[in-house]
């Protein structure tokens, strides 16, 4: 006499269906939150566009005295700070996109365009107002570890509003303007940076970047930020005016 062996087919099927249902629940929740992320991205981009228009309008009235350079520079720095923070959010949203990657891509493209517009606007403001900030156009490669971006984020913490960083994805074929900038600056190697008008290709260390940035501050005759004063003297090439 042996035991009657059975296979609990119905239970396996039911367990499979219930598992699928729970997974579907998870996916539904994922879709709901992805839609929320998309709305949030749209909101962020819109906000930045409004800030851009406001700044454009204000810079038109510098000569007439309606706005002054100090106020304009403060607004510019605040706007670029926000822009820098939010680009990270948009990039993260885009990376997490599972169901609407095209929409997130469009948002990112829109955001990059706004960044570029801000960059040109900042340069335009600098033609009318005395320079007191350093602008870095940073081209990252999304397929590589972004150590350079981390270093720039650290330097941003160090210099605060005096350092304006505009991050652009060098591997973003959807936006021809990025390609145009790469061609204009003759960039073929990533990561790359245009610090004011000087182009650096390949990875740069914290010390090199500190030197690059602080030299720019010296060249423009602006106040030397705290971030430069704390640098060990050995970092700098002697005679650049920082070794005091």
């Amino acid at each position: 006499m042996v035991i009657e062996r059975t296979i609990s087919t119905r239970k396996y099927l039911l367990a499979f269906i219930l598992t699928l249902l729970i997974f579907s629940g998870g996916i539904m929740i994922g879709i709901v939150f992805e839609n929320a992320r998309l709305s949030s991205a749209e909101q962020i981009t819109l906000q930045e566009k409004v800030s851009l228009r406001s700044l454009q309008l204000q810079q038109n009235y510098i000569e007439s005295g309606i706005t002054d350079c100090k106020t304009l520079n403060t607004i510019l720095e605040n706007n670029i700070n926000e822009l820098g923070k939010k680009v990270g959010v948009i990039i993260e949203y885009e990376k997490k996109a599972l169901f609407n990657p095209e929409e997130f891509n469009l948002q990112l493209q829109d955001y990059f365009l706004t960044e570029i517009q801000f960059y040109f606007l900042a340069k335009e403001i600098n033609t009318k107002c005395p320079l007191n900030n350093v602008k870095i156009l940073y081209f990252y490669d999304e397929n590589k570890d972004d150590t350079q971006g981390d270093i720039l984020a650290y330097l941003k913490k160090r210099f605060g509003g005096k350092l304006l960083i505009f991050s652009l994805n060098s591997q973003f074929p959807q936006e021809p303007m990025i390609g145009t900038l790469l061609t204009y600056y003759n960039i073929t190697q990533y990561p790359a940076m245009a610090i004011e008008e000087k182009v650096y290709q390949g990875h740069r260390t914290t010390e090199q970047l500190l030197e690059d940035i602080c030299s720019e501050f010296i060249d423009m005759g602006a106040d030397i930020p705290e971030g430069c004063r704390e640098i060990p003297s050995s970092v700098f090439i002697s005679g650049n005016g920082l070794n005091r």
Binding site: G26, Y93, T147, I151, K157
Partner: peptide
Amino acid sequence: YSINFDFLTLLRNFSPEINILTWPFAK
């Protein structure tokens, strides 16, 4: 290593930015 372990600057400028929307809710 790349920032010479300058934790002081990181701490001084630390601002927690929590964005619930980036949490992996499905998982």
